[in-house]
Nucleic acid binder design. Structure first.
Lengths: 200, 200
DNA sequence: CCTAAACATGAAAGGTGATTCATAATTCAT
DNA sequence: ATGAATTATGAATCACCTTTCATGTTTAGG
């Protein structure tokens, strides 16, 4: 979709992969605007012109990467939480998958945040798509009586906010895994709140 | 701190204010990298060179703005929740203040997100400072028995994540106020969780 | 092993934009 | 009112970056 030309040979596919890997690496390290086509092609050990065989312009790689990586993320989360019996378990597992993905693809994480300033529509679409699936699952759990009745949309964004900011703190700021212990505490929060019932 | 020269005359202060207002407006509309010094000085009706009387370079206005605006945000939240009796009320009020501020300064909100790619240290410092104050308040509430015992740091980032993503959805995506109803639902979630107790 | 399609090259065009600086205007304390 | 400090100007510099294209190399099917 964002590709100028689908490769036709093995060599072509390798070069495309090479470009994407280099772009992901550099975008996540230095950001979109501080990465030049020259940086990307140097990193990939190809000539600048070669870039334009595969992409029409700089923005296209960016869009291609987001599309590609976010599909992979959703797939992974879905897969790893598919055999969960309850929504609670799915939530727990989904959170684990998300953190795992963030750690192995710090790139996507940063790229998505930056996309707000590169291509606002794609940024919005990313979160809205993500939210949509979340909302569907929340509604199901509400129908089955597992979850309390509340606006599924607000809830979806709350849960996305939690995952994103915990990922930000542990993976991006501290550069380490989110400890299982922390995930458990968050799940306890989600399950029954943070305030004691006897007090206000 | 990020200023090259503190203005010495009334005229100087007016020009500085003028530059800052223009920069905030343009950064929040088009982002840091899509805004040129020329854009800023045109918007402010001054010559390009004048910019460099007040700031050493482009990055400096950005840093100055973040510093300035985030101080104002913290001040406002603190002020508006200072006479709350319980942590619950303070949380409620703080959330309201945050959304109010986001709406009147969409600029800061976007600028902070982008700062990750302009000056990572300032981005990190912003959230860490914010978290610190949050953590101190959480600890107090825990000591007084109002809040459950759990890692205050994890909790602080959860709550920041919620506010930020709700603000993103309603104010940035939908361009409207966060309805009181929604805030109440979020507070209910925070207070006692989203899962029913009888089920898992 | 030939050849048309696919892929790769890298120098150069064409722009943009941050920053400087010599010069000019304004301010304000005395 | 005056001049030293402050503020303002905007053309010019300089570095950098995206993108093109004429030319060369490689691939793979017949």
């Amino acid at each position: 979709m964002y590709l100028a030309n689908e490769p036709k040979t093995k060599r072509g596919y390798e070069t495309l992969k090479n470009i994407c890997d280099s772009a992901e690496k550099l975008f996540s390290e230095k950001g979109y605007y501080n990465t030049s086509i020259n940086d990307i092609t140097s990193e990939a050990n190809i000539a600048p012109g070669t870039f334009y065989i595969y992409f029409n312009d700089k923005k296209s790689v960016f869009q291609y990467l987001i599309h590609d990586l976010s599909k992979e993320l959703r797939k992974q989360i879905k897969m790893e939480s598919s055999n969960c019996k309850t929504r609670y378990d799915a939530e727990f597992q989904g959170m684990k998958s998300f953190f795992k993905f963030v750690q192995s693809h710090t790139g996507l994480y940063k790229i998505i945040w930056e996309s707000q300033f590169v291509d606002f529509e794609i940024f919005k679409a990313y979160y809205e798509t993500f939210a949509e699936r979340y909302i569907a699952n929340i509604k199901l759990a509400q129908d089955e009586g597992e979850m309390k009745e509340m606006d599924p949309e607000a809830l979806a964004y709350c849960l996305m906010g939690i995952s994103n900011f915990i990922g930000l703190k542990w993976v991006i700021f501290e550069n380490r895994e989110v400890p299982d212990e922390t995930i458990e505490q968050i799940m306890a929060f989600i399950k029954s709140g943070i305030f004691k019932v006897d007090k206000k």
